[in-house]
């Protein structure tokens, strides 16, 4: 579980909608294509929002790990 080669961790704990995706869109460019960002969030909406964001922006959510905080692994594809 969550054995990802993480290039960067993005701590978004305590931030509610729409900040997680706003921050994500600002930070995705800080890693290279193919690299993985680990997102830490306490916003339960992020569980469905990140896959939607990824679909729309052409990136990929590799895994979502429930917990406190929720961990989401996002791979930059373009």
């Amino acid at each position: 579980m969550s054995n990802h080669d993480v290039a960067k961790t993005l701590d978004l704990k305590g931030l509610p909608c729409p900040m997680p995706v706003v921050k994500m869109s600002q930070e995705i460019g800080s890693v290279s294509v193919g690299q993985i960002i680990e997102v830490l969030t306490t916003d339960p909406g992020s569980i469905s929002d990140f896959p939607a964001w990824a679909k729309s922006t052409g990136n990929e959510v590799l895994e979502t790990v429930q917990g406190d905080p929720i961990k989401i692994y996002v791979k930059r594809l373009k």
Partner: peptide
């Protein structure tokens, strides 16, 4: 702002 974050 959400839409802008989605690349729209």
């Amino acid at each position: 702002t959400g839409a802008a974050a989605m690349g729209m």
